[in-house]
Design a protein around this nucleic acid. Structure first.
Ligand code: NAD
Ligand code: NAD
Lengths: 267, 267
DNA sequence: ATGCCTTTGTGAACGCGTGCACAAAGATGG
DNA sequence: CCATCTTTGTGCACGCGTTCACAAAGGCAT
């Protein structure tokens, strides 16, 4: 899955734990599927299986919303769909802007699932003058010059950043100054934002690197299992000054045609 | 950020906590930037600021890798880059396949950051016969018929799924049967996979819904703050049978031209 | 009505992750 | 060689999240 959080760390949200909030969309999706199949009720066990979680966890999650189940029977599907939607704020319409209409931004604009649950793409914004007016997903791209106007006129509170990493911080500042208080960031940068602004990030590189870590471990374990005592696959924690040279060499060769421009501090 | 995890829950990875593993790529990115600017050493405080984390957390994270710092000085940037890269398994080359070359899949294929750190797109695979041979990001799209052959011939262990949700489970099964043991899933579905296979998911809808939840709370708090006792914005936990009708209505109207097809259980 | 059977809701224990705060390590300057 | 100053590495406490396990609740059949 995508990654973590970057908001106010502990501010309990009316008692609903952050971990629970993150799972509600999962439950909602499973419930919607049941609803479409006209299933009237569902037990915590069944729903948990569909959402891929532990049934006790699901029941505890729901208990934060209230006592919406019936013992011996389960949960009313329609009713739960409504309650969770309301809790997540999906009963209202959320206008969203996408900034940076390149490969990814265009894919996002074309994404149907966007509009599916209360989210409406209010505008597509790009800094490239050549993009101005060009239709993407049946909507003309607008120039960044009008960013503030677009945000305020549409009452936008949620912004999606799909610009190169180098532009992300600046874009976020403009979005926030114009009234945006929630940002979904696809650029591989750490955004620094004022209190009260929520940032969530989606970072492909990080996800792949985490997978690579586990993949390497699997390979190491396997090798270790095959050859009884070939204790080297997982690398020995011994060398130090020796590897310094190799380290420098490795670092020197590391400068591919990347897009991963990290955020750095003064010095 | 993107979302959670779906692998073996507690299997401690040679002592390195999962939370730490998830942050290593962040540190690596910040360190790489320093390296490119030829900064020789960095303190935990500085690096933590660049990565957007607490400095104590960073030091504890590094302590799991070993004692790589020098007291009174800080960490050697090049050396640390090498150590983290090695720990994450990025000193080797990871061939990756992308399955489902639509809007998103094409954007991913064109993404430079992919190749940046040890990941190489080995093949693009799609089920649409019309796509076969069509070049995307300078690489011909191959047909799913050859999926197994492509995986085994290239020694692929990591697969990216960017197909519609309905196809994701089946695609994952073919990938796994062919030898893939790590999957990055962009389709909004819960994949069920055998033990030993890691799945991470990136789910746009979930991220937006989490933002919407917090956004709604902000609006509620604001309203409550403005009007002293207009205690209704956050909804009263009273009604029940009354809202059942509204719930049904809301659910009935909820069936937009979505792509969010959830996974469902038998019955 | 009464009893059985299913399933919820939650108390309690546990484990992981986070952050504080500080002693020890080491560099640096005199 | 010693004193001082910086910064690491970590012991410790705390809080959140997860999971178990079970009593209470309610439907349903008899
Ligand atoms: N393509 C992917 O699959 C993918 C995956 C993960 C992350 N990312 C990240 O998403 C971002 C976008 O990726 P992409 O492949 O679409 O890049 P891209 O170069 O195709 O698109 C970037 C777009 O942003 C616009 N832009 C640049 N500066 C801007 C500014 N200040 N304000 C508004 N618009 C601006 C450019 O004109 C361009 O249209 C990058 O940060 C990339 O690292 C992309
Ligand atoms: N576009 C986005 O921004 C975005 C964002 C988040 C999530 N997603 C999800 O990513 C997935 C892809 O989105 P998209 O917009 O690219 O859709 P798309 O319809 O443009 O592309 C899907 C592609 O998958 C191919 N495909 C279908 N079945 C296949 C199979 N069995 N094997 C191989 N290929 C198959 C299709 O031929 C098509 O090319 C969807 O599940 C979507 O919900 C997309």
């Amino acid at each position: 899955m995508a990654t973590g959080r970057t908001h106010r760390p502990a501010t309990r949200s009316r008692g609903i734990p952050e971990a629970t909030v993150a799972r509600l969309p999962l439950y909602l999706r499973a419930l919607t599927a049941l609803s479409e199949r006209s299933v009237p009720t569902v037990s915590s066990e069944e729903l948990a299986a569909a959402a891929g979680v532990n049934s006790a966890k699901l029941r505890k999650d729901f208990s934060y919303l209230g006592s919406y189940g019936t013992r011996g029977v389960g949960y009313d599907v329609e009713y739960l769909v409504y309650q969770i939607s309301r809790e997540l704020g999906l009963t209202q319409d959320w206008p969203v802007v996408i900034v940076g209409i390149g490969n990814l931004g265009a894919a996002l604009a074309n994404y149907g699932g966007f509009a599916s649950r209360g989210f409406r793409v209010a505008a597509l914004i790009d800094a490239d003058p050549a993009m101005k007016g060009k239709p993407v997903a049946g909507m003309p791209v607008q120039h960044t010059d009008d960013l503030e106007k677009i945000i305020s006129e549409n009452g936008v509170h949620i912004g999606v950043i799909a610009t190169p990493a180098g532009a992300a911080q600046q874009v976020s500042e403009r979005l926030i100054a114009a009234g945006v208080t929630s940002i979904l960031n696809f650029a591989p940068t750490v955004l620094s934002v004022p209190d009260g602004v929520d940032v969530r990030k989606v970072d492909l590189s990080i996800e792949l690197q985490i997978l690579a870590f586990h993949e390497q471990r699997k390979a190491g374990e396997e090798a270790a299992a095959v050859a009884g005592a070939a204790g080297d696959a997982v690398t020995p924690p011994s060398l130090r000054a020796d590897t310094a040279a190799a380290a420098a060499a490795a670092a020197a060769s590391r400068k591919g045609p990347d897009g991963d421009v990290p955020a750095v501090m003064p010095a």
